[in-house]
Design a protein around this nucleic acid. Structure first.
Lengths: 157, 157
DNA sequence: CCCTCAATGCAATGATATTGCGCCACTGGT
DNA sequence: ACCAGTGGCGCAATATCATTGCATTGAGGG
């Protein structure tokens, strides 16, 4: 029947993903040239990848400092319990803060790793204060980034 | 003379950044419509933002699992010393690993926070083992992500 | 009040995206 | 071995978009 699953990716698909991950605004004509296809089938492949959810979207990478966000930091947050409703409530709370850019639940439960941005140290302090004083929060360890040697959004292809 | 710095962003620029951060493949015509400009000045603003380094690039967001990377995890790595050459060497080392997607130096020195992707738990174990046995590495704490409630690449605008 | 400069909009031109269609290769069944 | 059926490709045509040149407009300075 089918030698591979219907959503399997061949080498050309991987090349397309690699190119679009590296430059999301490349023209379809140029993309087709790089993966050695003509434009129409190349575009059809891109559409298929988008519709399959393999490409979730395209984003401009904006320098945070240009918008006044000089500080990026992480916060390791421990909650008092591991009860699901408590975890859910904490997630819902911080997800509403625009300064929280990522919220990952880690390990067995009760712990979260957040990535946040702040305009300055006062803003940062305010954010950590808000975290510390939030309901059910037991401890907050902030990890201030001194410098970032690598920051690639995607995955290796 | 100048009411604001030459690289200052007005409200239209911020709108452009917000739109391109949300959808990096939007056409210039559509972008111009949303920020209430005609196409040429809109494109000129985008080019200016790109050349000023405010827009660093555009990237497709690819689902890691589609490429076989089922696991994302973080690693807190402590080195034995804070000597600059040791820090630099560690950074150079892990930056060469494709599975390391982010490498942030944190706090006073000697500590790094890494974000990594792995195909499976065996791959993850191999990576943490490589970290643990790397030269000058004192300790490695892995933070396995159970679930991710929020993962926004950019900054609030 | 005039001048200057920066930014805009319009119009024209060259590229690109998108669709329809025919062709070829491969697969499975006869 | 032959014959559909299927999927993917390239070509060609058309709609849309990107990009450039140029005239106009409005705000601030002289």
């Amino acid at each position: 029947m089918r030698p591979e699953s219907p959503d399997a990716l061949d080498e050309t698909d991987r090349q397309i993903l690699a190119e679009l991950q590296a430059d999301g605004r490349i023209t379809n004509v140029e993309l087709a040239r790089r993966v050695d296809l003509s434009a129409p089938p190349c575009l059809r492949r891109v559409r298929r990848l988008e519709e399959a959810g393999i490409i979730r979207g395209y984003h401009a990478e904006v320098t945070p400092a240009a918008l006044g966000f000089e500080i990026t930091f992480f916060a390791l947050v421990g909650l008092e319990t591991q009860k699901q409703t408590v975890l859910d409530r904490f997630e819902a709370l911080v997800c509403e803060w625009p300064e929280v850019r990522e919220c990952h639940m880690i390990r067995g439960g009760g712990d979260f790793l957040l990535r946040l941005v702040a305009r300055d140290t006062a803003h940062e302090n305010e954010l950590t204060g808000r975290l510390t004083s939030a309901d059910t929060v037991q401890r907050v360890q902030t990890l201030q980034t001194i410098r970032t040697a690598k920051d690639e959004a995607g995955v290796p292809i």
